[in-house]
């Protein structure tokens, strides 16, 4: 009898121990893209354990629903993605295969960043002859710091809903981020004044939100239609139609093939400006702040000429 009660106490102790480990355990987060990993780590610090499904060298439109991603999503308590159909080619399948109720749409653990901001380029007509246009508009919302701050606010609210007991923690982290971010935004705006209304040739509509924020202009797109790779016939037409002397450069993301941009660059003498598209693109770009610093510095080096 004594042994039994001792065993009982040991087991109870173990059980309580396990429970407390669980309550101190971090929130497992599955981020679709590195920018959301960076953002949720700012707000959640040591309380979140984040994996990113993609890295800065991968085109987030074209990811395979790999077995490893299914396993990672199965373990997640929280899912943070861009949404607006950016991940339509792989996320629905991951959600189905992982069977994780916590991160299904309509659950608290399902957070689509672009749901919370006004999106640009929402098409008036849905016709595939216009290319692979997203019916929900341009999904690349993270490149506007104002929208990013709005998303951070919503994310903080959501995390507080998921873990009400840690409201103070998330609020403090958010306020610290907001103060720093607002002063960064002032600094970036000051710095980029000489760029205002300058024109650039782009490759895919990756930069629309950045342009919207900095009042830059898109002179032409290397893609004939969204999602259709550049071809020589289209580029030749573009070369003859476009007054490239107005442009300051050709923007490509670090994950894109720069061949088409170099082709045009050789014929127009416009510089090819390779910009980091998200966090992790190179050693200098390891934070969201670093991402905007790097983008702006790159644009200034070429745009002021």
């Amino acid at each position: 009898m004594r042994i039994n009660s001792k065993l009982y106490r040991v087991l109870l102790g173990l059980f309580i121990g396990l429970l407390s480990i669980k309550s101190h355990a971090a929130l497992n987060v599955f981020a679709c893209e590195p920018e959301w990993k960076a953002l949720i780590e700012i707000l959640g610090k040591e309380r979140v354990d984040v994996v990113s499904a993609t890295n800065a060298f991968q085109d987030p439109h074209y990811i395979e629903a790999r077995p490893s991603l299914i396993v990672k999503l199965r373990r997640a308590d929280f899912l943070i993605c861009t949404g607006a159909d950016l991940e339509i080619g792989w996320l629905p399948l991951l959600l189905k295969k992982s069977g994780n109720q916590k991160v299904l749409p309509s659950q608290l653990g399902h957070f689509m960043a672009s749901d919370f901001v006004k999106r640009l380029e929402v098409p008036h007509r849905h016709d595939r002859s216009d290319g692979d246009v997203h019916a929900a508009g341009n999904p690349h919302v993270h490149l506007d710091p104002q929208r990013l701050l709005l998303i951070a606010t919503e994310l903080k609210n959501r995390l507080t809903q998921v873990e009400p007991e840690h409201e103070r923690f998330y609020e403090d982290n958010y306020q610290a981020f907001k103060t720093r971010w607002l002063s960064n935004m002032d600094r970036w705006k000051q710095k980029t004044k000489p760029l205002m209304s300058k024109e650039f040739i782009v490759y895919h509509r990756n930069w629309s939100y950045l342009f919207d924020w900095l009042s830059l202009k898109e002179l032409a797109d290397l893609e004939p239609k969204p999602g259709v790779p550049p071809n020589s016939r289209y580029l030749t037409a573009l070369l003859s139609k476009t007054d490239s002397t107005q442009a300051k450069g050709i923007l490509v993301s670090n994950y894109q093939n720069p061949k088409a941009a170099h082709w045009l660059s050789e014929r127009t003498a416009l510089p090819v400006i390779t910009l980091p598209f998200t966090v992790g693109a190179n050693d200098d770009v390891q934070t969201l702040e670093g991402l905007f610093d790097a983008i702006i510095d790159q644009l200034l080096t070429n745009g002021e000429k």
């Binding site: 949404g83 607006a84 159909d85 689509m112 672009s114 749901d115 919370f116 901001v117 006004k118 999106r119 019916a135 929900a136 506007d144 104002q146 929208r147 701050l149 709005l150 919503e154 607002l182």
Partner: peptide, 18 residues
């Protein structure tokens, strides 16, 4: 942040044809 307010959007209207 007044301009920021105009950029916000209710989450529910994300996908009308779902």
């Amino acid at each position: 942040m007044t301009s920021g307010f105009a950029l916000a959007m209710a989450g529910a209207s994300a996908c009308a044809n779902e």
